[in-house]
Design a protein around this nucleic acid. Structure first.
Lengths: 210, 210
DNA sequence: AAAAAATAACTTCATTAGGGTGAGATAAAT
DNA sequence: ATTTATCTCACCCTAATGAAGTTATTTTTT
């Protein structure tokens, strides 16, 4: 039975078996209602506004426009809709691009049915459901490399450089002499084996020194 | 009954009632073993290496050294130990500092007992358990402001500037003329009402334009 | 077709960046 | 107590970059 209060779910997934599997799972769950299933973004685009889902389950590999690239377009059509990524991919780059494009959650396809249901509920409540492994990767992205060769001060100065502040300004804000800043920078360059701000920042970011 | 395979849990929490509550909850759960409870980091430091927990439940507000500041010190004593933050605080700054300092998870204190147990298990399995609201904030930190006044190209160039690349180098890497880069930068400055790279980056970051 | 965005050319002037070398002061570790 | 690491500052040098102004053409999007 479908009440007005049901959470309206849309599913964009090219594999018919998976798509219909999800649709059945969600459709027979009390409190949830599948308002549309679509094999591609192009197909979904035609009906999404009419179907008006609260939550969209989105696959990342789709024929035509990829799920990730589709996200901004979906947001444009339905700004209030929450997008929940459901995929087999666990590559960092894909995950961060998806989250950056507005995903409210990111689940892998081995997620058990009851977790998918609770994840849909969770995004409606303002949560951000993620598979365990994904969550750890996301948390890991905040963490620094403890093996950094840079001292605390050097790290601090490199961070300032990464905001494109001039040496003079850095000196002023840290209450030290311009010459001191220059010394630190020279030491940073030597340690990282680089010869410019840009290269220092790249090396430091790649190695999570900053 | 405590077997050798039990997950060894330590608890650093100043409120005795809460501390003992968690200890009881975890101690009577099969597969888990409380190896130590401590009212402060200072107390914990004396016994942690001996007690050798696999997972530490850590409060952020502690007498003396705060939980967040204690994290790097704990990591030094026990590099393999997973730290799970358990707190009432949900401020963005605290959360990001905690995650940046090496937390494997972040739970709020209204987390139901069974979730705490499963979270401990999850960190042991390489997961990153977070309360729903926390997870959404973390995800939100990856997202951009869609109301950015900057065009795609301008955003791209400002991102390059944020890596401290020179205009010349940006021009080369984007296969456009130096003059074009300069034009874009001028437009960026006008739109953001700033007069330097550093200010542009600050404004853009504050508003999540980049 | 109109609007928005990306591209480029010219000027002028001030500031910054990178590299070399040395050295004193201070805090941390053992 | 004494190394050691870190932070601090000084003086040298040259070349490149950054900022602001105005105007204009081409391409893309709506």
């Amino acid at each position: 039975m479908s009440r007005d209060l049901d959470i309206r779910v849309g599913i964009i997934e090219d594999d018919e078996t998976i798509r219909e599997g999800y649709a059945y799972l969600i459709g027979q769950t009390d409190g949830y209602k599948v308002v549309g299933t679509y094999p591609s973004f192009e197909e979904a685009a035609k009906k999404l506004v009419h179907d008006d889902p609260d939550v969209i389950l989105l696959d990342v590999e789709l024929p035509g426009i990829s799920g990730i690239d589709a996200m901004p377009k979906i947001k444009k059509l339905l700004p209030e809709t929450h997008i929940l990524i459901l995929t087999v991919y666990e590559q960092e780059l894909l995950i961060f691009r998806a989250l950056g494009n507005g995903a409210a959650g990111y689940l892998t396809k081995n997620t058990p049915p009851e977790k998918i249901i609770s994840a849909i509920h969770e995004v409606m409540e303002g949560g951000g459901p993620m598979s365990a492994h994904i969550a750890r990767m996301v948390i890991g992205s905040f963490q620094r490399n403890e093996q950094s060769p840079l001292t605390r001060r050097e790290t601090e100065i490199l961070e300032q450089i990464a905001t494109a502040k001039s040496r003079k300004r850095i000196a002023q804000e840290l209450f030290i002499d311009l010459e001191t800043v220059k010394s630190h920078i020279k030491n940073i360059y030597h340690k990282l084996n680089v010869h410019s701000k840009a290269d220092a920042i790249k090396t430091a970011k790649d190695n999570k020194f900053i």
